[in-house]
Design a protein around this nucleic acid. Structure first.
Lengths: 336, 336
DNA sequence: GACGCTTTTGACAGCGATTTCGAGCTGATG
DNA sequence: CATCAGCTCGAAATCGCTGTCAAAAGCGTC
C-alpha cells in the first residue's frame, strides 16, 4: 500500500492508460471526463497509494495552499486558542497554517514576514503585531492580510477587532456595581493598542460613575504573570487603599493574585479581582477568576475565515465577536 | 524596495549579467565563483529585493525545508512550550515547522500524517501520538521520524523519552520524606504510556518505603483540569484519609486544587499537593505548585535537533533530559 | 455517409529553482 | 609554442503538476 518512493501523477496516468492532463483534471475537477476513465484513474490512484505533491502543485499554480500566521509567542496561553481556531477554519479547504513567532520584536517580526513571503504563503494573519501600519499596508499590496487588534482598512486587508474599550468598561462597571469605589488597574504595555483601549474603558467607567480616577492606582505591566505580581507589590507599597483590581489580562491577574496571597490579602473578601481574556485556566484558579471572555478560539476562526474569503476574492464579512463579563468567584460585594 | 510581483532568480541573473546557474551557486555556496561576479550578484539581489522561492527550491531539490509536527492539542499549555522549542531549533538551518493537531484521535492523526506526506515534509515529529508502533515504523521507512513518549528503535527513527517512572518516584518520595504516608494519586488515562510510567513510579516509591498501596487512593483522570476536580471529589466521597496528593500532571493538579478549595481544605496545611510538568503557570497558582519539572521547551528543542541530524544523515545523539522535583509551596511537612 | 458542433483528450509549455555536463579560460609544464 | 590540469561558468534537463490549445472523438442531422 505504501510505496517506497513517492508516486507521481505521471505514474498514475501511465497505469490508468491516460495522459497526465486527464489525471490532473480528475484530481481538480477542472473539466468533464468520461466516466470510464475517471474510474480507471481512481483505481490507479488507490492501487498506487498516490498523494498529489502539494509542493509541485503550488509551484505550478502559483499558490502554496498555506497561510502564514505571525503570533507574538507561540507558547502564550491566549494565542494558542487562537491558533487552534485558525487551524480549524483553514483545514476545510485544504489550507495549512504556518506558525511563526515574532517575540514582541519588530525586527524579528519583519524577518518572519520575509520567511513567509519566501515560502510564498497565500496570505498572512498577524495577531497583534508590532509592525507599523504603513509597512503593513505595503505588504497588503502583495498578499492578503488579516490583522487583529488594529484599526486599519484597505484593499486586500481586513482587520478584526474586538471592542476592548467597551469590554473594559463593562468589567470596571461590574466592580462599581458591586459597590467598589477604589479600583486599581494593572494596564498592559503602553505601546499596545489593546492595552490602551482597556485602560480607556476603565477610565470611562469611573468617570461615568462620577468616581475620581486616581492615577496612582494605575500600574503598567507587560501582560505576563510576573509583571502582575510586581505591579501589585508596587501598588501595595503606595499604601493607597483599594478594594478591587482590574487587570488588563488574565495572566497579570494571576500574578496579582499570587502577590495578594503572599500578603495574606484574601480574594474576593478583601480585594475583588477581575481579569481579561478568560483563558481556559481561569476556570481553575482559586478562586475561579471573574474575567472578560473574549473567545480566543473564535477570534482565530473568524480570522481564518476572513483569510479564505480574501484569498478567493469574495467579499469579506467579519461577524461581530461577542465580548462579555463572566462572573465567577473572584469578585464580590464590597464589604462594610 | 518591495517589488510588486515576486522577483525570480532569472531576473537577478539577467541584472547581474550572469547565468541563472551562477546565481544559484552563489546562493547555495555549491561551487567556487569569481569574486567579481559574486559581488555583482549580491548587489543585484539587494537591489531587486530578491527572496528565493522556497517552493520552487523544494521541488527542485526534493526537499521542502519543513518538518511536520503532530501534536495532540495545539492549544495545550504543555505542548505549546514544546512547539516553541521545536520552532527555535529548526529556525537556524532554515527549516519551518508545520503544526497539525491530532486531537487524541487515531484516525485524525493518520489524516494529519497524510497531509504532511502530501506536503512533502522532510520529516515528522510526533508528540506522544496514538498511532500504533507498527504503523509508525512503516512511516519511518519513508521519512525521518522523531517521536516522544514511546520506546521505539529503528532506522530513520529516534524516540525521545523521559524517565517518567523515576520522576514519579522522586515526586512521591518527596511526599514520603515530608512524613506523608497516606498519599493519593490522580493518574492519567490508562492507555497513555507516560501515565502508566508515572503510576508505576508512584507505586514503587510507596513500596520501597514499605507503605501499603491503597488502590482506592488511585483515581484516573484524563490529563485535563476538569478531570482533576472530578477525581478529587471522588476521592473525598470515599471518606478515606489522605494527607498528600500526587497528580500525574499539573493541569489535573489545578483541578484538584480547586476542588480542595471548594471544600475548604487548605493546601498545603491540610493536604500537600504535587504535580508533574511544571507548566509556566504553576509558578503562579496559589500556592505556587510543587511539581516535577520536565522542560517541555527542552523536549521540543531536543526533538528538533534530533530531526535535523536525522535529515542530514548524521548520527543522532539525544542528550539526557533532566527531570527533577521543583519544591515550591504546595507541599509541606505532615502535621501532627 | 458527410457535415457541423460539442465534448474529451493529449501534447506541450511553463512555474522557479537545482544540478549535471562539458565548453572556455587560465596558468604551468615540457 | 603545444599540451594538459584545474577553475569558472553557461546550456539544458529536471522536479511534479497545471493549464492552454488544438486535435480527436462522439453525436445529431440531412
Amino acid at each position: 500500500m505504501d510505496g517506497r518512493s513517492p508516486v507521481t501523477l505521471e505514474e498514475v496516468a501511465r497505469r490508468a492508460g491516460v495522459s497526465p492532463s486527464t489525471v490532473s483534471r480528475i484530481l481538480n475537477g477542472t473539466a468533464r471526463v468520461r466516466e470510464s476513465k475517471r474510474q480507471a484513474v481512481e483505481r490507479a490512484i488507490a492501487d498506487l497509494g498516490y498523494h498529489p505533491n502539494v509542493i509541485a502543485r503550488g509551484l505550478a499554480r502559483g499558490r502554496s495552499m498555506s497561510v502564514g500566521v505571525i503570533t507574538q509567542d507561540i507558547a502564550s496561553p491566549f494565542y494558542n486558542e487562537t491558533l487552534k481556531g485558525i487551524e480549524d477554519s483553514l483545514a476545510g479547504p485544504g489550507y495549512a497554517p504556518l506558525f511563526v513567532s515574532g517575540h514582541w520584536n519588530e525586527a524579528k517580526e519583519a524577518e518572519c514576514m520575509a520567511l513567509l513571503v519566501a515560502r510564498r504563503v497565500d496570505g498572512v494573519i498577524v495577531l497583534t503585531g508590532m509592525i507599523d501600519d504603513a509597512t503593513l499596508l505595503g505588504y497588503a499590496l502583495r498578499l492578503p492580510l488579516v490583522i487583529t487588534g488594529r484599526n486599519l482598512r484597505g484593499p486586500n486587508l481586513v482587520s478584526i477587532q474586538l471592542d476592548n474599550e467597551q469590554a473594559a468598561f463593562d468589567a470596571t462597571w461590574h466592580l462599581i456595581e458591586l459597590g467598589h469605589t477604589r479600583i486599581a488597574h494593572i494596564a498592559g504595555p503602553e505601546s499596545n493598542v489593546d492595552a490602551q483601549e482597556r485602560l480607556a474603558g476603565y477610565r470611562r467607567a469611573l468617570t461615568e460613575a462620577r468616581l475620581p480616577v486616581d492615577e496612582r492606582l494605575i500600574v503598567i505591566g507587560d501582560f505576563h504573570e510576573a509583571s502582575g505580581l510586581l505591579a501589585l507589590n508596587q501598588l501595595l507599597e503606595t499604601r493607597l487603599h483599594f478594594t478591587a483590581l482590574f487587570a488588563a489580562n488574565d495572566q497579570m491577574a494571576y500574578g496579582a493574585r499570587l502577590a495578594l496571597y503572599r500578603k495574606g490579602i484574601r480574594v474576593p473578601e478583601d480585594v475583588s479581582l477581575i481579569g481579561f481574556d478568560d483563558l481556559p485556566s481561569s476556570l481553575y484558579t482559586t478562586p475561579p477568576l471573574t474575567t472578560v471572555r473574549q473567545s480566543a478560539y473564535d477570534l482565530g476562526k473568524v480570522a481564518g475565515e476572513a483569510m479564505l474569503q480574501l484569498i478567493s476574492g469574495q467579499a469579506v464579512s467579519v461577524p461581530a465577536l461577542p465580548l462579555r463579563v463572566i462572573v465567577r468567584e473572584s469578585t464580590m460585594l464590597r464589604r462594610g
